[in-house]
Write a protein that binds this DNA or RNA. Structure first.
Length: 542
RNA sequence: GGGCCCGUAGCUCAGCUAGGUAGAGCGGCGGGCUUUUAACCCGUAGGUCCCGGGUUCAAAUCCCGGCGGGCCCGCCA
């Protein structure tokens, strides 16, 4: 069994890592790694590449016509990870995943011979192999690749989760997200869809003459939303800077720069709590189109989202779960448009129109809403969120938001108490926000000033109220002249989360933050394997 | 910021209510098996019961503190 006693004898067992010589011996020499080495296959020193000639998805498409027991003449090479293995003596069935699809591969002793068979016997779930062979259909009708030759390209050192339940523990899922994505197909699908949706958005905007720019993530003045920012240190300027909470004020500076159709798929950072709908870093697409108003923007948004969904999912209608039930979301434009006050009346049976400030507070109190922000508009928003938002299932534009909670939006041409602002709701969740942009630098300055006043005035009574900071540089940009412009921001994580019926926004984020945990690497566990590679690669001993 | 729940073998979990020898399935390892689909059959190894303290003759189990994670409420999209 022991293949290289010399190396083993020169290795020094570390008492902190191995409890005894005996244990070091039994643990290490039984590691299957040594059995690969024994038959001359080092999982890292032997193979450096593999010629792949097709994908499993292509094989599935081209050879599903095969009859049971049928064999194709053509030979293909594919590479991927072994996701399952069923051993039947001199025939072994495995499931290979090459990233495009899974396909059964069949190892037969009579095809491969004694020498290769010793390698087949060492294969485990999780190993990475390149295989060459012919498509066949087994007696049970499973399209497969009959392996005629194969290479071990890398091995897994750790046991994979159980095949039936997979990786279910939420802590382990988020901690080892690569396993979660590898084993839980719904997670992987959502993450792939996110790429496709972003690409569809870009293609759509590209066809309409938009360009994308990168706005700064490190900013001296944050803005474009009402949220607590992350503060970090920029040593080059010896000052604190803010991580971008939104690209808005910079994209509108770009509009001032004659980039009249501009957008960004932007990571935004907001230093707020994590829950099923919120994560401190998230991705938005923000779009600005000059010479347009909010009505044009609603039209653009419903066209862009619905066509992206058609492209990615093949249909305007998507079935998703809503609690215990299933519901079909219909993205076919045009979407419903309803004012926020009408929505409150329709879904909550509460009349808002014509109510004065004190009456509004009474309504809020009767709904068990805590008043922690004095603005009239904030109270209306809270009432909406409580009584109407959860009931909005189909893609819907909620319009006519109160002016006093929209410091960057243009007051309504019909009633300056309101802004020409809409939000997009799907399946009870806000996924977007847009408006006719305020392009008047005089009024913009006034609104910023009011925001500052609000912060100071309400601080004693309510504590810190989210407000938009004064951004004089942005006002100066507007002073050079910004055309009438409409803009929108759409939360991409939330959209994908809804489209895939996933319960938490973290499920669609490829990797989220976790505290470091305590564990031993393979090199820490197996001193002799460490020494083997130190020796083989002529590294300095540690 | 407030509340609730979880942490036991590589993975999924039982055991905890009512303190008394650490369990199962899968996976691993060994054996058998040339058409399986969570393959099957036989055998076998594998544990800091998250950590620390307390109560007790005795703690995975009860109590206190901590760490890690999830969910809900508040705030933010």
């Amino acid at each position: 069994m022991k293949s290289n006693p010399a190396e083993f004898l020169t290795s020094t067992p570390n008492s902190g890592l191995c409890r005894s010589w005996f244990e070091a011996l039994t643990m290490s020499t039984t590691h299957r790694f040594w059995r690969f080495v024994e038959i001359g296959v080092d999982p890292y020193l032997t193979e450096y590449r593999y010629d792949v000639t097709t994908t499993l998805s292509d094989i599935r498409a081209k050879y599903s016509y095969l009859e049971k027991g049928g064999e194709a003449k053509e030979r293909f090479s594919v590479a991927g990870r072994i996701m399952g293995i069923r051993r039947h003596g001199k025939i072994v069935f495995a499931v290979l995943d090459d990233g495009t699809a899974q396909l059964q591969i069949v190892f037969r002793h009579d095809v491969l011979g004694d020498a290769m068979w010793r390698l087949v016997e060492l294969l485990n779930v999780g190993d990475i192999v390149g295989v060459r062979g012919r498509p066949i259909k087994t007696l049970r009708g499973e399209l497969s690749l009959l392996v005629e030759e194969f290479k071990v390209l890398a091995i897994t050192w750790r046991d994979f989760p159980e095949k039936w339940h997979g990786l279910a523990d939420s802590e382990k899922r988020y901690r080892m997200r690569y396993l979660d994505m590898m084993l839980n197909e719904d997670v992987r699908k959502a993450i792939i869809s996110m790429y496709k949706i972003e690409k569809a958005f870009r293609d759509f905007l590209d066809s309409r003459g938009f360009i994308e720019i990168h706005t700064p993530k490190l900013q001296a003045v944050y803005g474009g939303a009402l949220a607590r920012p992350f503060v970090t240190r920029m040593y080059a300027l010896d000052r604190d800077v803010y991580l971008s909470i939104a690209p808005e004020t910079y994209l509108k500076r770009a509009v001032v720069a004659n980039l009249f159709k501009v957008y960004e798929i932007a990571v935004c950072f907001r230093n707020e709590d994590i829950d099923a709908q919120h994560y401190p870093e998230f991705v938005q697409i923000e779009i600005y189109q000059a010479f347009s108003d909010w009505l044009d923007m609603m039209k653009l948004v419903e066209e862009m989202i619905s066509s992206a969904i058609k492209t990615v999912y093949g249909d305007y209608k998507i079935e998703v779960s809503r609690g215990e039930e299933k519901v079909v979301l219909d993205f076919n434009p045009p979407w419903t448009r309803i004012t926020i006050e009408d929505a409150i009346e329709k879904f909550g049976n509460i009349k808002i129109k014509g109510k004065d400030y004190n009456e509004l507070i009474e309504i809020a109190k009767s709904l068990d809403i805590k008043i922690d922000d004095p603005r009239r508009g904030k109270i209306i928003e809270k009432i909406f969120e409580k009584v109407a938002e959860p009931k909005i299932v189909q893609p819907t534009f909620i319009t006519m938001f109160p002016r006093d909670v929209s410091p960057l939006a243009r007051p309504s041409r019909e009633d300056p108490e309101y802004a020409e602002r809409f939000e997009i709701f799907i399946n009870g969740l806000e996924v977007g926000n847009g408006y006719s942009e305020l392009n008047n630098p005089i009024v913009q300055y006034y609104f910023f000033k009011k925001e500052e006043e609000l912060r100071i005035k309400s601080k004693e009574k309510f504590g810190e109220v989210e407000h938009h900071p004064m951004d004089k540089d942005y006002v100066r940009a507007l002073e050079y002249g910004m055309p009438p412009t409409a803009g929108v921001g759409i939360g991409i994580y939330r959209l994908v989360m809804i489209l895939h019926g996933l319960p938490s926004i973290k499920d669609v984020i490829p990797f989220t933050i976790v505290e470091q945990d305590d564990f031993k690497t393979i090199a820490e566990q197996y001193n002799d394997i460490l020494n083997y590679y130190v020796d083989r690669l002529k590294l300095d001993k540690i």
